[in-house]
Each structure stands twice: as structure tokens, then as C-alpha cells.
């Protein structure tokens, strides 16, 4: 078990290292001069050189990479070109927004997706199953920003015109300030993300359940005279959710790294919004920071998921 864990952690670190190398090469080695960008098109050569010196861009490449990596290990991602604030601090200050959206929508998509998948799997081919499959395909085909825009149009604009002011158009209210307003402002973003993701989970659950229903122990459970409910939920769902667990860990990690589209549509100041703004401003330390930050989430989630998997399923540990 310890060896398994160690192997996974080392491979995760390797992945992070590879991503750092790629980001470093892309941003600091490629024909692209951050100093020039900051100085602006009118700047004289002296000014550009001065900025280069200040940013340490005049040092040899390997030395710079060593420093970049050394700082990275200590959690120092540098300073924003835009407002000179520490990158990590800037990103962390946006995390509560992104986390609020991610966790809220996760609850929603699990609550919708899994029961939907179970319902479909219980009667494959039935009208219920076909409606479920229809929802899945529509959900998977809808781009996130289209869902967001349509929700804004229908649930915010149309309803507000009718005098029903249930859904605000966006903005963020911290949870600590007012839980009710927090939830109210995030409801549309939650639905937006949960829409497509619930579809994925419904499909996964359905497939898993159908497989499990073919197992002998389900037949045995039925033969023992257990209620259908107990057979489906206690015996069936329990073993069907293990693969869902993997997917869930990765999805959540991906969302925590920044919800570029949803934050843009609803004007929420999260990490994804920060990334887009930084791209527009040419604020490279922040761009690199967000990518590394988000990758770290995915890598950590990968290790955790494997660990959880190994705890749940002894077969994984042995192989």
C-alpha cells in the first residue's frame, strides 16, 4: 500500500514538473519578450532593458529556470506584472468564488445525475429511459456558455420583466456575508454547470448499473426476497458508484482550477475570470500561475482518487 501510494505521488510530482517545464519554455524561452509587452510599443531600448533586469530576464536560461522551480516549490509564483501583487495570493483570494460555484454545482449534478441514471437503468428501453437518454444527449450537446446565456435570458430577464425577481443576473456575495444571498446569486451558475455534468453522470450511472444488474449477487439478492428498492440502492448502486468516484474527483478538481466560461457569463470574480483578464492584459505570471494552480488540483485529485480506489477495491492495490 505504501509503495503504491509512493509510486502515485512520484508520478504526480513528475507530471507537475513536466507541466512547469512546458509553461516555462512557452512563456520565457519562446520568441516572446514580457519586458517588451510591459514597456509598451513606444518604449525605448533602455526602458525595456531596465525592465528585463528588474524581472531577472537578463540572466542565463538555466539559472532562471532553477530559480523559477525553486520558488515554485516554496509556493512563490512571482508577482503580477499588472499590480505587483504576489501571484499565489491573488489566485487564492479568488478561490472562494470558484470553490463556491464548484461545490454547489457538484451537489446539484450528483443529486440530479445519479437518480436519473438509476431510473433509466431500472427499465432500459422504457419511455423513462428514453427521456433520460434524451436529456443526456441534449445536456452533452449544449455548450456551457449557451446554457448560461439562455438561463440569463429566460430565468433572469424574462422572469424579472414579469415581476418575478428570483434570480439575479450575476455578481458574487460571500457566504460569510449572507448565506441566502450567496446561494441566490450562485443558483444560475450552479444550474449552468450542473446541466452538462449531470448528463455525464446520468450516462455513467446508467451504464454502471446495467452492468451491475447482470451480476449474480443481484439475482441472489432478488431471490432472497429483498425489496426492489433495497436491491437497487443498497446492493446495486453501492458497487456502481466506485467508477463514479474517480470521475467525480477529477471533475471537481478541474472545476476548482477555474470556471472560465461560467465566471465570464455571470461576471463572477473567480480564478477563471482572473485568467481571462490576465490574458487580455498580458499578465504572464498570473497566467502561468493559474495554469499551474489548476494542474496541481488535477494532479492531487488523481493521487487522491487512486488512493481512495485502492482503499475501496483491493484488486487495485495488488496489481
Amino acid at each position: 500500500m505504501a509503495r503504491f501510494l509512493l509510486r502515485r505521488v512520484v508520478s504526480g510530482l513528475l507530471t507537475m514538473f513536466a507541466i512547469s517545464v512546458v509553461m516555462f519554455i512557452l512563456f520565457y524561452v519562446a520568441p516572446n519578450d514580457p519586458a517588451r509587452t510591459i514597456a509598451g510599443p513606444q518604449a525605448t531600448f533602455d526602458v525595456v532593458e531596465q525592465i528585463q533586469r528588474r524581472l531577472g530576464l537578463d540572466q542565463p536560461l538555466l539559472e532562471r529556470f532553477g530559480k523559477f522551480l525553486g520558488n515554485l516549490v516554496q509556493g512563490d509564483l512571482g508577482y503580477s506584472y499588472y499590480n505587483q501583487r504576489p501571484v499565489l495570493h491573488t489566485i487564492l483570494s479568488r478561490l472562494p468564488v470558484t470553490a463556491s460555484i464548484a461545490f454547489g454545482s457538484a451537489v446539484l449534478w450528483l443529486a440530479v445525475g445519479i437518480p436519473l441514471g438509476v431510473a433509466s437503468a431500472r427499465r432500459p428501453g422504457s419511455l423513462r429511459d428514453r427521456l433520460g437518454t434524451g436529456f443526456v444527449l441534449v445536456g452533452l450537446s449544449f455548450p456551457t456558455f449557451v446554457v448560461g446565456l439562455l438561463l440569463l435570458y429566460l430565468l433572469f430577464f424574462r422572469l424579472t420583466l414579469l415581476g418575478v425577481e428570483w434570480f439575479p443576473a450575476g455578481g458574487y456575495v460571500p457566504l460569510t456575508e449572507s448565506p441566502w444571498q450567496w446561494a441566490r446569486h450562485l443558483l444560475l451558475p450552479w444550474i449552468t454547470i450542473a446541466f452538462a455534468t449531470a448528463a455525464t453522470y446520468a450516462r455513467l450511472t446508467r451504464g454502471q448499473m446495467l452492468e451491475v444488474f447482470g451480476e449474480d449477487y443481484i439475482r441472489t439478492a432478488r431471490a432472497k426476497g429483498l425489496s426492489e428498492r433495497r436491491v437497487v440502492y443498497r446492493h446495486g448502486l453501492r458497487s456502481a458508484v466506485t467508477p463514479l468516484f474517480t470521475q467525480f474527483g477529477l471533475d471537481l478538481a478541474l472545476l476548482l482550477g477555474g470556471l472560465v466560461v461560467t465566471e465570464q457569463v455571470f461576471g463572477l470574480p473567480g480564478i477563471g475570470r482572473l485568467a481571462v483578464d490576465s490574458v487580455v492584459r498580458g499578465d504572464q505570471p498570473i497566467i502561468i500561475g493559474t495554469v499551474l494552480f489548476a494542474s496541481a488540483f488535477v494532479v492531487v485529485a488523481n493521487v487522491l482518487v487512486d488512493l481512495g480506489y485502492a482503499l475501496l477495491d483491493a484488486r487495485v492495490r495488488i496489481s
Binding site: L14, I19, L26, G258, V261, A275, V279, V291, S295, V299
Partner: peptide
């Protein structure tokens, strides 16, 4: 396989917009 896994652990939209930034 490691290469595939590494590419899959990149946050693709963020990475995409950072490429576009360059």
C-alpha cells in the same frame, strides 16, 4: 501513456487561453 496522462491533467481551457495569450 505517461505523456497521455500528463496532457489529460492539464486544465485544457486555461492552457488553451494561455497559448492564445502567447
Amino acid at each position: 501513456s505517461w505523456f497521455i496522462d500528463t496532457t489529460l491533467s492539464l486544465p485544457f481551457l486555461l492552457f488553451a487561453i494561455s497559448l492564445v495569450a502567447l
